[in-house]
């Protein structure tokens, strides 16, 4: 389908981007906040006014756009700058719809990050924000696949970003998305209780149809909704049969397993169906958020481009890795498969 050329990523783990570091950043009260030491590319007077989702999106965007120009910007974010959104909402209620300043309002619209990048890079091309909850980033990938099919000589920025805000943590907590007990992220994957821990992050990719010098190829993507494991089983077989070239196998599964006991059956099914394939996990390092599959894609492209896989992922594979399957389910309803391959 298309090739990844530049990548950038911000999560709670600094060691993702500095592989010599082997330490794990631990969660605080079931939240894994993204590191904030990568904003050098944003002028201080601008930085001050930005919410975290916008900061993460612009910082990761800057990192790749400094290396390669693009013809358009395609982002996925379920909530965008939700912190600003609720700040504005609080003002509405507290000042009883009095005189308000528009800054929080303008920044809180989910399309603000893609728009801001467009303004900063004077990019007048295609610009869009997909916001379909746990499939927002996947729809961004489908979009860019279609764009490159229509415009094979173009290059695009595609990415995903979401933040933990105090407020969405509260709302998700009310919805039962997070664990009732305080748990260290290092224990997350062995947990037997309901809920996960909150995470945030951003990952950006410069993609086009040029094979040479690419880090990885995104070969196929499939999104679907179901609560039934039988449907998941059927979709997985179908995906493997159609997406994987004849005679090849999946060498590694990057699983979105998030320690929520209610979702274990979905993740277990995928592992069981591909029994011979080793599996690696990442949500104990990033926490759960709707566009976490963007980080999974970043990890996959790192694994494929480095001779020594990331130490934190503890990947033990005897042979070189050619094909990586990403599987994620958001709340056991929205599901996605992404097949990423070595170039």
């Amino acid at each position: 389908m298309f090739y990844i050329h530049q990548t950038s990523c911000i999560t709670a783990q600094q060691s993702f981007v500095e592989p010599t570091l082997r330490s794990i950043t631990e969660s605080v009260e079931n939240k894994l906040y993204a590191t904030e030491n990568n904003y050098d590319s944003i002028p201080p007077n601008v930085l001050r006014r930005l919410g975290k989702a916008v900061k993460m999106g612009i910082a990761t965007g800057n990192e790749v756009l400094a290396k390669q120009e693009v013809d358009g910007i395609i982002l996925g974010t379920a909530n965008g700058g939700l912190e600003d959104c609720i700040k504005f909402l609080n003002q509405i209620i507290q000042y009883q719809e009095g005189r308000l300043t528009p800054t929080n309002f303008v920044q809180s619209t989910t399309n603000a990050i893609a728009g801001q990048l467009g303004i900063m890079y004077k990019n007048k091309g295609y610009n869009i924000t997909h916001v379909h909850r746990g499939l927002a980033f996947e729809n961004a990938l489908i979009d860019v696949e279609m764009l490159l099919s229509d415009h094979p000589t173009n290059t695009y920025l595609v990415g995903g970003v979401d933040e933990i805000s105090e407020y969405n943590y509260t709302i998700e907590d009310l919805a039962g998305s997070y664990k009732k007990e305080i748990l260290s992220n290092t224990e997350l994957l062995n947990s037997t209780t309901d809920g996960s821990i909150a995470g945030e992050g951003a990952a950006m990719f410069v993609v086009n149809t040029v094979k040479s010098n690419a880090t990885a190829e995104v070969k196929a993507i499939k999104t679907f909704v179901t609560k039934k494991t039988e449907t998941l089983e059927k979709e997985l077989s179908q995906f493997i049969n159609t997406a994987l070239p004849k005679g090849e196998k999946v060498d590694l599964i990057v699983s979105g397993k998030n320690g929520d006991a209610r979702l274990n059956n979905y993740y277990a099914l995928v592992e069981n169906q591909l029994k011979e394939t080793p599996t690696t996990y990442y949500k104990h390092l990033t926490g759960e958020f709707p566009t976490s599959s963007a980080v999974a894609l970043w990890l996959a492209s790192m694994v494929l481009s480095r001779t020594e896989p990331l130490a934190l992922l503890k990947i033990e594979v005897a042979n070189p890795i050619k094909n990586i399957l990403l599987y994620n389910t958001y709340k056991g309803n929205q599901h996605s498969f992404i097949l990423v391959s070595a170039v």
């Binding site: 619209t109 399309n111 869009i128 997909h130 916001v131 379909h132 729809n139 679907f224 909704v225």
Partner: peptide
């Protein structure tokens, strides 16, 4: 809407203001 009509294909939400 997707659940209401039991739509099985691609489903998406877009915000470009």
């Amino acid at each position: 809407l997707q659940e209401l009509y039991n739509i099985q294909g691609i489903c998406n939400t877009i915000n470009t203001a």
